Simulated scan of single mutants.
Amino acid sequence: MIIPWQQIDPETLYNLIESFVLREGTDYGEQEKTLAQKVDDVKRQLERGEAVVVWSELHENINIMPRSQFNAQSQTPSKEQ
C-alpha cells in the first residue's frame, strides 16, 4: 500500500529516507555524494512521483521504492490464488 509522503511527519520522513539511503549501497560513480545530498535526491524523487513510500502488510515494514517497481509488483498475480 502506498503511503502519501506528504502525510508523514517531516522529521519521520527525513529519518525514513536517511535509513533507506544508508542501506541502499548505490554507487554514484566518480563523484561520491554526501548523505545529505542523497537524502535530497530521494526526497525530490518522492516529490516528482518517481519513488513511493510503501507499507507492506505481509512483512510489516515500510520502504521506499521506484514507482515503476511498485507498479510491476502490484500487477504480478499472487501465488495464493
Rank of each mutant, 00 (worst) to 15 (best):
M1Q: 08
W5G: 00
Q6V: 07
Q7W: 06
Q7T: 14
I8G: 00
I8W: 00
I8R: 00
I8E: 01
I8K: 00
I8M: 01
D9E: 15
D9L: 05
D9W: 04
D9C: 04
P10G: 09
E11F: 04
T12S: 12
L13K: 02
Y14P: 07
L16G: 12
L16C: 06
L16Y: 02
I17L: 12
I17V: 15
S19K: 15
F20K: 01
F20H: 14
F20C: 06
F20Q: 05
F20Y: 15
F20T: 12
L22K: 15
L22H: 09
L22I: 13
R23D: 10
R23W: 06
D27Y: 08
Y28A: 00
Y28M: 05
G29Q: 05
G29A: 01
G29I: 11
G29F: 10
E30T: 13
E30V: 13
E30Q: 08
E30W: 08
Q31A: 08
Q31P: 04
E32N: 06
K33S: 05
K33N: 07
T34I: 10
T34H: 10
L35S: 04
L35H: 07
L35T: 10
L35N: 09
A36Y: 09
A36W: 05
Q37H: 07
K38Y: 04
K38D: 04
D40Q: 13
V42A: 05
V42N: 00
V42T: 09
K43M: 03
K43D: 02
K43N: 05
R44V: 06
R44G: 01
Q45E: 08
Q45S: 09
Q45I: 01
Q45H: 09
L46K: 08
E47K: 10
E47Y: 03
R48N: 10
R48L: 11
G49Y: 07
G49N: 06
E50W: 11
E50C: 02
V52Q: 07
V52F: 04
V53G: 01
S56I: 05
S56G: 03
S56F: 04
E57D: 06
E57P: 01
L58K: 09
E60N: 12
E60P: 02
I62K: 00
I62W: 03
N63W: 05
N63V: 04
N63E: 07
I64P: 07
M65T: 11
P66K: 11
P66Q: 11
P66D: 12
P66S: 10
P66V: 03
R67K: 14
R67P: 00
S68W: 08
S68C: 05
Q69V: 12
F70I: 01
F70L: 07
N71M: 15
N71F: 07
N71W: 08
A72D: 11
Q73A: 14
S74Y: 13
S74M: 14
Q75G: 12
T76D: 12
T76I: 13
T76F: 11
P77C: 13
S78P: 03
K79T: 15
E80S: 15
Q81Y: 14
Q81V: 15
